[in-house]
């Protein structure tokens, strides 16, 4: 088992390395000179050269990449002398446009993304799974058909469109909610909740649809299994059969899916954040693209990839734990 984990970790590291390399390469090859952007309006070639040297982008590609990697473990200093800027370990970049270490910027925005992700997760787990479960139990009835239609619509509806529709209906026309504002939970819990409500709904909508459909399929498949027949033949009460024998096999695959979905969202729900103006990691990435703040783009990409890769391993181990057949060696 431990050799398995070790192998997975090794692959994880290699994957992250490859992702970083590839991203680095793309920016190196394609991006306009960031020094120009940082330099601003009043620019001289000398100043550009200074900035370039400070950024270290006058070095050949592999040297740059090597420096970047080293920085992740040991921190990094940009430039030298009086204008030197220190970037603490782990250093995944320093934004010259903002004057901050990228990791610091990400951590500053992380609470918003986490709030968004967790709130939406609660909604989609509760509604998605119950909808799927009820549909499976009442399959082929009007209820089932109706909820599957809703699920279908959920998959097809673009979330930015839903965001606009919701805001138009709830804020402009019905006036039951205010436009979302970035107020902290401690400042005004009521307003905080109201501000997050629509983003939560918008983000959760797609997942509710996906989870409902998946739950329904899984439950229907499980109900067809032979061990369900055995449970009925034993004369067990219906609710016990459902709770014990049907739910566990149906929901276990969802655990792994959920793990991956949450991990992805921790890297920022880009569109939802941007549309509602929430300062999360996703919006940070988007703004960075708009201003061509390369270190930030690199840093966020790496950060998001890191979560996904780690989540992959965690989820895999979790699944092995949850399914007894994978836990021990079979005869």
């Amino acid at each position: 088992m431990s050799s398995y984990i070790a192998r997975r970790l090794l692959w994880a590291v290699l994957t992250l390395l490859a992702v970083t390399f590839f991203t680095f390469l793309v920016f190196f090859a394609l991006s306009p000179d960031p020094a120009v952007a940082i330099c601003g309006q009043t620019c001289t070639p000398d100043r550009i050269a200074t900035i370039q040297h400070q950024l270290g982008i006058d070095q050949p590609f592999l040297v740059q990449f090597g420096t970047f990697l080293k920085g992740i473990f040991a921190g990094r200093t940009y430039g030298e002398g009086a204008s030197a800027i220190a970037c603490q370990a782990p250093c995944i970049g320093h934004s010259f446009q903002n004057g901050e270490d990228v990791l610091t910027m990400i951590f500053g925005r992380l609470p918003v993304s986490v709030t968004l992700a967790v709130g939406a997760a609660v909604i989609w787990l509760v509604f998605g799974i119950s909808l799927g479960l009820v549909s499976a139990l009442k399959s082929e009835t009007g209820w089932d058909r109706a909820s599957m239609v809703v699920a279908l619509a959920g998959v097809a509806l673009p979330n930015y469109f839903l965001a606009l529709v919701l805001q138009y209906v709830l804020v402009v026309k019905l006036q039951v909610l205010p436009f979302p504002s970035s107020v902290g939970f401690t400042e005004d819990p009521g307003l905080w909740f109201q501000s997050y409500l629509m983003p939560w709904i918008v983000l959760a909508f797609l997942y509710v649809a996906l989870y409902a459909r998946l739950t329904r399929t899984n439950v229907l498949d499980t109900l067809n299994e032979n061990f369900m027949r055995t449970a009925r033949a034993k004369g067990l009460p219906g609710s016990l059969i459902l709770r014990r024998h049907a739910l566990r096999p149906s929901l276990t695959p969802l655990v792994t899916l959920f793990g991956m979905d949450i991990a992805t969202l921790l890297g920022g729900a880009l569109i939802t954040e941007t549309v509602f103006g929430l300062n999360g990691v996703g919006k940070l990435a988007f703004d960075a693209v708009a201003t061509n703040d390369q270190p930030v783009i690199m840093g966020v990409t790496l950060f998001a990839a890191f979560f996904v890769v780690i989540a992959n391993i965690v989820v895999d181990l979790l699944y092995r734990f949850l399914d007894p057949r994978l836990r021990t060696v079979t005869r």
Binding site: T230, A233, P249, D323
Partner: peptide, 20 residues
């Protein structure tokens, strides 16, 4: 069922719940 009439099925692997 299970009390006065009991049933034994053909394929014991699929007839038992693997999770318990």
């Amino acid at each position: 069922r299970g009390d006065q009439i009991a049933m034994i099925f053909q394929d014991p692997l699929s007839s038992l719940n693997p999770y318990y």
